[in-house]
Amino acid sequence: MSFEYGKYKILYLFFIITPIMLFFLSFLIGRYPVTPIEVIYTLISKFNPSYVVSDTVSSVVFNIRLPRIIGALIVGATLSVVGATFQAIFKNPLVSPDILGVSSGAGFGAAISILINGSSYLTQSLAFIFGMISVTITYSISRVYKSSGVLILVLSGMAISSFFGSLISSAKFLADPNNKLPEITFWLLGSLASINPKVLTPVLIITFIGLIILVLLRWRLNILAMGDEESQALGLDTEKLRVIFIVISTLITASAVCISGIIGWVGLIVPHMTRILTGPDNKILLPASISFGASFLLLMDDISRAIFIVEVPIGILTALIGAPLFLLLLKKGYSDWRA
């Protein structure tokens, strides 16, 4: 029960400590060897320059590993929390963050930029903009059809997704197969290897604000999951509340996708893995899935950096490792779920 904190203390501790530990451990992983002491000294040197170990170590820590680590934490947290949010507001446990078309829109934006030789800055900007555009179209369609329910929203999301999906395919078809095509494909598979620190700051700010709002409103998700009529009878302005959730979710998802490319599976499966540990109450589930998602993606990225000689796109790894892990948890937690 949600108020017997004692029973959950260990779980809470786990959710707080895991991402912090992984954050520090992740600095140690990579081709250039750095010791834990060096990492701690270098991080402190940001505030007290007398702790600087060496310029190389500073550069490795601040320019290469820190953006990547923060990127992984942001993207993992965002995809998971949006997955959990959408599963509640669409009353469907099979929904993932790209249900309204944000990923395919972003993918198309990135593909255009790659086609016209845009800078990585342009690619990320266009990805963000087109991600927002596609969700706006989806939402407008559901408004034009004057449907208050979520079904039309989800269906028009599917239509817009496949529409932008086709545009991506057209871009790939037109792209030069020697350099442009691989670049588009690689972007679509997701990667945290080339995060631009300049873009990271605004993304970090948007994500931070968005996560706070979602966490503050989280308990209402329980009620929305009961359906519109019950929610209204319980005093919620469902239409308004849903718009707030969708706008915030789309903003942070678009910011995440624009720095990472399309990383599948996380947004669908991490909320479920978290739910198996915490139960479905969004009061606990939402913060927990932020922690779980951030840790999960950071761990996947560490694995992709540490184990393989060639860097494997993280979008491949998340499913490759995530699927068996999920099936393992599934046996333990969901086998008697009747809902």
Binding site: M1, S2, A88, K91, N92, P93, N222, A225, M226, G227, E229, E230, Q232, A233, L234, G235, L236, D237, R275, G279, P280, D281, W337, R338, A339
Partner: peptide, 27 residues
């Protein structure tokens, strides 16, 4: 507003679709 009304009237629906297995106390 919905909120004002719900302070005066409460609803017990005839049909309910279950999405998540909430605990009784949470419902």
């Amino acid at each position: 507003s919905y909120k004002d009304i719900s302070k005066v009237m409460a609803y017990v629906p005839q049909v309910h679709s279950y999405t998540f297995p909430f605990k009784v106390i949470d419902v």
